[in-house]
C-alpha cells in the first residue's frame, strides 16, 4: 500500500517560488488501478515522481508498504525504485545505445541478476508485450508505440508490485495508446498496482479509480 501524508513540493523557478504540490494526502491500495487526471501544471507529475522515489518532497511523507521513504538513504531509495516500482515515462527514456533486450535487462543488471537469467527474462517480457521479433532493434529503429512497450517490459524487469506511468500514452497515437492501456490493464489483473497520470479522460477510463488534481491539490 502506498499513502502520502501532507505531501508538498516547492520549486524555485528563477526567483519565483512555485508550489507544485500542496499538502496532498492520498491512499493507494495494493492491486488498485488509479488514474490521476488534471491539466498540465496541476502537479500530477510531481506527485508521481515523489511516489516513484525519483524526487524528494519539500515537506510531508510518502509511505510505501509502511516504509517512510523520506527516512531512506540514497541507496535505499535506489533499491525501492529497482525492486518495488516500475516507472514508465512519457518520453520512453530508453538508453539509445542499447537494443530492446538490453534495455529491458538493464534494471536486472543493476539488481545483480545473472546474465543468463537476465536475458531469459527480458526475452519473455518482450514477448509478452508483443515485441518478440524486435528484441535486437535499437530504440531508434522502433516506432513510438514499440518503444513504449519496451519501456513497459523494462518497468516489469524486476517484477515490481507497483507500475507507475507518467502520461504513458502522451507520445503515441490513440490506437497505440489504447493498446498500451490494455497492457497496463492486464498487469493490473495480474495483481499489480497501477498508477497512471494523464490529462486524457478516455485513458483515465481504463482505471478503477480516478483522482482529479488542480493547482497542486488532489480534489475529492
Amino acid at each position: 500500500m502506498i499513502h502520502t501524508e501532507n505531501l508538498s513540493k516547492t520549486y524555485m523557478m528563477g526567483d519565483v517560488e512555485v508550489q507544485a504540490l500542496r499538502a496532498v494526502d492520498l491512499e493507494i491500495k495494493d492491486g488498485e488501478f488509479i488514474a490521476i487526471i488534471g491539466p498540465s501544471g496541476s502537479g500530477k507529475s510531481t506527485l508521481l515522481n515523489l511516489i516513484g522515489c525519483l524526487d524528494t518532497p519539500t515537506s510531508g511523507a510518502v509511505f510505501i508498504d509502511g516504509i517512510d521513504t523520506g527516512k531512506l538513504s540514497e541507496n535505499g531509495l535506489a533499491e525501492i525504485r529497482r525492486e518495488k516500482i516500475g516507472f514508465i515515462f512519457q518520453q520512453f527514456n530508453l538508453i539509445h545505445t542499447l537494443n530492446a533486450l538490453e534495455n529491458v535487462a538493464l534494471p536486472m543488471f543493476f539488481a545483480g541478476v545473472g546474465r543468463e537469467t537476465r536475458i531469459k527474462r527480458a526475452d519473455e517480457l518482450l514477448a509478452k508485450v508483443g515485441l518478440g521479433d524486435r528484441m535486437y532493434h535499437k530504440p531508434s529503429e522502433l516506432s513510438g508505440g514499440q518503444q513504449q512497450r519496451v519501456a513497459i517490459a523494462r518497468a516489469l524487469s524486476n517484477d515490481p508490485e507497483v507500475v507507475i506511468g507518467d502520461e504513458p500514452t502522451g507520445n503515441v497515437d490513440t490506437e497505440t495508446g489504447n493498446a498500451i492501456m490494455g497492457i497496463l490493464k492486464g498487469l493490473n489483473r495480474d495483481g499489480r498496482t497501477i498508477i497512471v497520470v494523464t490529462h486524457d479522460a478516455e485513458i483515465a477510463a481504463y482505471a478503477g479509480r480516478t483522482k482529479r488534481m488542480r493547482d497542486g491539490r488532489v480534489l475529492d
Partner: peptide, 16 residues
C-alpha cells in the same frame, strides 16, 4: 546526464 538520470530512475545506485 540524461542517460545517468534514466539509469538511476530504473534503480541504479549512484555507485553503479
Amino acid at each position: 546526464t540524461h542517460e545517468i538520470g534514466v539509469m538511476k530512475a530504473i534503480g541504479a545506485k549512484s555507485r553503479d
